[in-house]
Amino acid sequence: MKFGLVLEEMHRSENDLAHHLLTISERHKVDHEIYHLARDLARWSQQHVRDIAAMGKNYGLDLDPEPRGEMGLMETMREKGSEMAGRRPETGLLLLRDLRELYLKACGVSADWELLAQAAQGMKDKDLLALAEKCHPQTIRQMKWANGKLKESATQVLVS
């Protein structure tokens, strides 16, 4: 059965999304809403990683329940870098690039949840379906946040 691959991919992509959210948070510390919200929303993906790892056991998979760690020194350097570059106009373009990438990553994770929910229905696995029903709406909210922020920030960055 190919289902194991879906779960492994799901585990990888949620880890990646959480990590990207944390990176964006650090890189845009001077954009305070991005900084705080990205951290809040990373926690959702980190919880998904734990939930997927627990679910993996049912399918004989050994997935790491601990979300990919934050990098202490790099994190601080990025935050400092953000504070130093905060008065330069180029940071706006970097923000748009990061939000665009975040949006695409969240879309990917959302598609992964679709796949997983379809498989769960095929296998009549209620626990798995419940997991998708719990997590997928949060992924969509992450996606909409990225999209909303992108729209909100674009005009000022691009026409100023």
Binding site: H32, G86, R87, R88, P89, G92, Q156, V157, S160
Partner: peptide, 8 residues
């Protein structure tokens, strides 16, 4: 305030 900070 953020836009005033980044100069836009």
């Amino acid at each position: 305030m953020r836009y005033a900070e980044d100069g836009s």
